[in-house]
Each structure stands twice: as structure tokens, then as C-alpha cells.
Design a binder for these strands. Structure first.
Lengths: 326, 326
DNA sequence: TTGAAAGCGCTAACAT
DNA sequence: ATGTTAGCGCTTTCAA
């Protein structure tokens, strides 16, 4: 076969504790239906600690048929501080259930998700990205439970963001809106849905749809775009994100215009820079709050075989009022 | 034992292809030293594809004594677009070597790194965070190779960033510098080292050390800080990061001052917002360029048992000139 | 309350 | 060129 590794195994622990390997397993797993005297338990636990024993996941999941690994699939985009906090919560809550959270960060790079699932024998895959049917099926065929972090509702929530933006601008008296599309990823699902939210809100309030224009990360180009909005009597602009919103602000500055008087501007994301741009940026923040813990609960339930009343939604848009659109 | 799962195994593939399970293993692993006729290979491959077979990682690594999992340990902070690209490269390059990249995103949350290593039987751990000796030892005791992504040199590079900032300002004629510390994490290693770089550069050029002040993400507070710099005849400010730099810009704006005339400002990070703030922000970008691929090479070498001339450094600071400090 | 023993699905040495 | 077989370290039944 191969050189036997020198890593500590449960057999070593058993020898050290003077019990059988089976007993070690019982103690370490708190096997229910097994009653272990305190004295034995203590001896095993101490031996394990003394040897710094760590059960080998591969052996464990091979034998048990399921691992304690939860795979989190994230889109490859930069990860915001906000999302970062959500992941922390999720990891912490899962750890309390003895589960290990590992992340697949880079959609489309590296090995395909189903391969990764098989590679670590994941018991659950939590996906924050929409999986096409084929991938989803392949994941499930590896034996992993599939949990959608933002499934189904994602579309609704994305639109809710747009609605919140438009609603705020309209309530402050703007009747003709513009929409600032990002130069990159302009065709992405998220971009489309957020803009749809704005359109829907305008429609509901009997206003014309927003005048959508693409904004580069360049003051001069942005100024041109601003010119066009002004020409069209636009008085409020919803941007796809805070960066695009800041580009609009920069374009206005070049023309001697200022927010909110000439054009009210509202972004999405609540990036730190938005607090100190000129003027400070009104934006829609997407909070994850306790949803990390909620999701962990869903994951745990799934492992019990239950199908809980679907995941509470992960996101929750909130208006952050600052000077650019008071 | 347990209900036999209905997942496809290599035995199923063997049956489907009409060969032994061993042969399937040979074909799928391209076992060197084994010669397989094209016809057999084809039959096996087709059977595998037909059944959508995926080798189970746990069984594989249990038998082979090593898995194909590479664990990337990242700090819990938000992940920049830049770092994101680095990870993509790494994942892609590793995949070419048949390795799977999984990420441990949340330092200090969830299970400890050594536990995760054991849980997935990682063969390599790539750490972008400094690991304390105890953790490092524990990781290695799980059998994983430890590769430091930015080890040792980290300090040098962090200082190089500060030097680049200061050098640029000084070369453009500024003789008295300020340093903008972030309100949060002000005591962090990175913050200290970056500022040390600025101090070192000032010292080398025979100038006084920078006047370091803490800047909040708040225009009014920043204005107060700017007042103090002006009072002290500071003419150029190095900020810990782009956000802090933008706060300085905001403070200046409140006082009717503008960059670079009254105060030249330079950040770090090259965040997108810096392209469209007022004025556009000069900054130091930290590029990962091809270091994802480089690191993958180091990982592969380590798995071969070689100890290559230590990892090429991961980062490389570069000046991005814009209006705030031309 | 404990332990012996049978696998889990795979790799790799050893036949054939 | 292919198959037989012995484990890898663990969980879990079953017997003691």
C-alpha cells in the first residue's frame, strides 16, 4: 500500500487511554444510545487532548456516509464587509453544530462545484448564487443537500432594492428619474433586476420609466451622461451601486451642478467611501443581520431530514439617508 | 453499518465498462507506469461519463493518504476585487494540477483551521494570514503542507507601500507630511507597518516623521484633523487606505481647501470609488498579477516534496497617479 | 459497559 | 494488460 502515516489515529488514543478504539469513537462522538461512565469518558478525552488527536474527515465520512463539511458557494465578486459578517455568523453557528464551513469563492474558476462537493464529500451545499438545473442536479447526485441562501426570493429582493431607491426619490418630489447602469457587468442578472424594481415603482406611481444610461468610472464621461439627464429633465438618479452613484456625482461636479439640488442621487451598497464623498451619498444598504444564524438553522434542519419552511430571506434592504438625496 | 448509498461508485463504472474496478482506477488516475490500451481507456471513460461518476474524495484520500484539497486561509476582512482575481488565478492553476481550492474565509469564526484541515484532509494549506506557531504546528501535524502566501516578506512589503507613498509626495516637493490613521483597527499590524514605511522614507530623506492623526469616516471630524495638519505646515498626507484618504479630501472640502494645492493626498488600495472622487485619488495599488499562478507552482512543488526557493512574493505595490497628488 | 469485526470506496502492491 | 487483494481510519452492528 503505502507508508503508514505518523499521524495520530483514534487507535493511538485508544491505546493511550487503555480502552478499545470503539470506545474512543463512542466517547468522541457522544454516540447516543451509548452510556459511558464518567471515568472512562474522562480518560479518553484526556488521552485525545494529550495527543492532540483530530479525527480524519475522510475516514469518518467514508465510514459514516456523511461528512460534517458544509460548502458555501459564493459569486466571484469582491466580498463586502457586510457579506463577510454574514459568513462569520454562518460559520460560527454551524461550528456549534459540529459542522465545518468551507467556501468556494470563485464561480467559474477552478474545479466545478459538483467536483468540489465530491472531493470533500460535502453534506450540504449552501449556494448564494443561482445554480443552473444541471449543476444543481449534479450536486445532489453527489449526495449533498442543496440549500439556496437567497433562492426564489432573490428576484423579489433585488427588485425591492430598486423600489426602495425609486420610492425615496419620488417621495421627495422627483418625477422624472434616471438610472445609472454600470459599465461592467451591465447585463448581469442583478443589474437587470434592480433596474426592474425601479421601473416597477415608477409604473406603480404612474410615472414614466427611468432613463437608463451607462456610466463609466470616469468623471468626464459621467459628465456627458449627466448632460443627457439634465436635457431630459431628469431630477433624480438611481444608480446600480455606490460606485456608479459616485461617478454621477463626479460628473455633476464637472458641470458645476450639485446634489441634491440639481439632481438627487442614490446608490446601493453603503460602501465606506460613500460616507465621505461630496456630498455624502444616500444609499440602500443590504443587511444580513441574523440571517447567518437563520441559514445555519436551515442547514441543520436539512441534515435532520426535515424540510423547514424554506429559508428566511437572507437580505433586507434599508435606506441610508445622507445629503445626496435627503 | 449503514444504508448503502445509491451514489455511483467506481465499481459501478467497472461493471458498466466490463472491466475490473482496478482498471477504472488506473484509467481515471492516469496511473503512471500503467499502460492501458486506447480501447479500454475509452470504454472506461465513456462509462464514467454516462454514469456521471465522480470519485469520492474521502475514499480516495483515505486510501492514498493524501487528498487533492488545498485550503486557502484568508483574513476575515472584506475581499477586494484585486484579491478576488488572485484567488481566481490560484484556483484555476491548481485545478490544472487536479487540485481543489477551498477557502477558509473567517479567521476566528467557525472551527479552528487545524480542525478544518483534518476535516477535509487537506494536503496543503496556503495561508495569507500570519499563523501563530502553535496553529502552524497543529496544521502540519494533520499532515498538511504549509505554504505562506506572503510570509516573511509581508513586513517588507507593507513598508514598501508606505515608502512609495512618502517618496512620491516628497519628490513632488512636500517636506512636511501627515499620516491619516484609520479610526478602526488603528493598532493592527498592517497599519503599523505601512506607517513605518512612511517614517522610514522620511528618515532616509532627512525629513521629520509624519504627523499621524486619526481620521473618522466623517467630514466634520476630518475637517478638524485637516485644520491641525494645516496648522503644522503639513503639505502632503499619506493615508492608510483610500477610504481614509477620501475622508481627508472631504475634510478639506469643508474648509474650502483642495488637493493637491493645499494638501496633496495619497491613499492605498486603488478602490473603484477613488477614480471618481473629487479630485480623483492618487493611490498605491497592490497588484497580485501572476502571483496566483506563482503560488500554485509553489504548492505543486511542495506536493512533489521539493522545497522551492520560497514563494515569490504575492504583492507588489504600484503608484497610481491621479489628481490628488500628481 | 465494552470490544471484535465488518465494511465505507478507493489506491497500490502484487499476482496473473 | 488486467485482476486480486490488502488495507487507509473510522462508524456501527452485534456479541460478550
Amino acid at each position: 500500500m503505502r507508508r503508514p502515516s505518523n499521524r495520530v489515529t483514534s487507535t493511538d488514543v485508544a491505546r493511550e487511554a487503555g480502552v478499545s478504539q470503539t470506545t474512543v469513537s463512542f466517547v468522541l462522538n457522544d454516540t447516543r444510545g451509548q452510556t459511558i461512565p464518567e471515568e472512562t469518558r474522562r480518560r479518553v478525552l484526556e488521552a485525545a487532548k494529550r495527543l492532540d488527536y483530530r479525527p480524519r474527515g475522510s475516514a469518518r465520512s467514508l465510514a459514516a456516509g456523511r461528512s460534517d463539511v458544509v460548502l458555501l458557494a459564493l459569486p466571484g465578486v469582491p466580498i463586502s464587509a457586510n457579506l463577510s459578517r454574514f459568513i462569520e455568523q454562518l460559520a460560527a453557528a454551524l461550528a456549534e453544530n459540529g459542522l465545518s464551513l468551507l467556501t468556494h469563492l470563485v464561480e467559474g474558476h477552478g474545479r466545478p462545484l459538483p467536483d468540489l462537493c465530491a472531493a470533500v464529500d460535502a453534506s450540504v451545499v449552501v449556494s448564494l448564487i443561482p445554480l443552473d438545473a444541471e449543476t444543481a442536479a449534479a450536486v445532489q447526485r453527489t449526495g449533498a443537500e442543496l440549500v439556496h441562501g437567497a433562492a426564489g426570493r432573490a428576484q423579489v429582493e433585488l427588485q425591492a432594492i430598486g423600489r426602495l431607491q425609486a420610492g425615496h426619490l419620488i417621495e421627495s418630489g422627483r418625477e422624472r428619474l434616471g438610472y445609472a447602469l454600470p459599465a461592467l457587468h451591465a447585463t448581469e442578472f442583478r443589474v437587470r433586476e434592480r433596474m426592474r424594481g425601479v421601473e416597477a415603482e415608477c409604473a406603480d406611481r404612474g410615472l414614466a420609466p427611468p432613463l437608463a444610461l451607462t456610466v463609466d468610472m470616469d468623471g468626464e464621461q459621467a459628465a456627458l451622461v449627466v448632460d443627457e439627464w439634465v436635457r431630459s429633465s431628469v431630477t433624480g438618479v438611481c444608480a446600480y451601486n455606490d460606485e456608479a452613484a459616485m461617478a454621477v456625482l463626479a460628473g455633476m461636479h464637472r458641470r458645476g451642478l450639485s446634489a441634491p439640488d440639481d439632481l438627487a442621487v442614490i446608490g446601493v451598497g453603503d460602501i465606506v467611501a460613500g460616507q465621505v464623498c461630496i456630498p455624502p451619498l444616500t444609499t440602500v444598504a443590504v443587511d444580513y443581520e441574523n440571517s447567518g444564524r437563520d441559514l445555519a438553522r436551515v442547514v441543520a434542519a436539512r441534515l435532520e431530514g426535515e424540510t423547514p419552511a424554506e429559508s428566511a430571506s437572507v437580505t433586507r434592504p434599508r435606506l441610508v439617508r445622507r445629503a445626496s438625496a435627503p
